[in-house]
């Protein structure tokens, strides 16, 4: 029985170390990714794949804008439409260098990040059936 107990403890420690290593690797990859794209997450309630989707979309569009002039509305439009299409309505996006906001968002549908010198707020609200009364 003591042998079995020791074996269980050994396996448990091994699994825990595996999990920890995996987390560390994932965090490092995410950190590298953000650094490469000059992205900094300020606040977040969103699954990682969606975050990365937003960062990549923003990065691609900013890189394609001529003379580095920021077109806030176009970036907001692009992000909102991409997320509406991919993850269902209704997403909202605010982009700019100077704004504050106070919003209510769906669970798991909120990210506020900066990329280069611009700030991006992307969030989702529930869509309910229209009241036809």
């Amino acid at each position: 029985m003591e042998g079995a107990q020791e074996e269980l403890e050994r396996r448990s420690k091994f699994l825990k170390s595996l999990i920890q290593k995996k987390k560390t690797i994932e965090q490092q990859e995410q950190h590298d990714h953000l650094q490469h794209n000059n992205v900094r997450v300020r606040a977040c309630d969103m699954p990682l794949p969606l975050q990365n989707r937003a960062f990549r979309c923003a990065r691609d569009l900013l890189d394609s804008m001529p003379s580095k002039k920021l077109d806030s509305k176009r970036l907001a439009l692009t992000l909102k439409k991409e997320f509406d299409t991919s993850y269902g309505p209704a997403w909202h996006c605010i982009v700019g260098t100077s704004f504050g906001s106070y919003v209510t968002h769906s669970f798991g549908g909120f990210v506020y990040f900066s990329i280069d010198k611009v700030y991006v707020l992307l969030f989702k609200t529930a869509v309910e059936p229209l009241d036809h009364s």
Binding site: S72, R74, L77, H92, C93, I94, G96, G100, A126
Partner: peptide, 22 residues
């Protein structure tokens, strides 16, 4: 606005922003 007209309102205030929403 939430208290007077029901929940779900959003507000953005600033001097430099663009946005797109439903």
């Amino acid at each position: 606005f939430d208290s007077v007209y029901g929940n779900g309102w959003q507000c953005v205030v600033g001097s430099n922003f663009g946005c797109y929403f439903t």
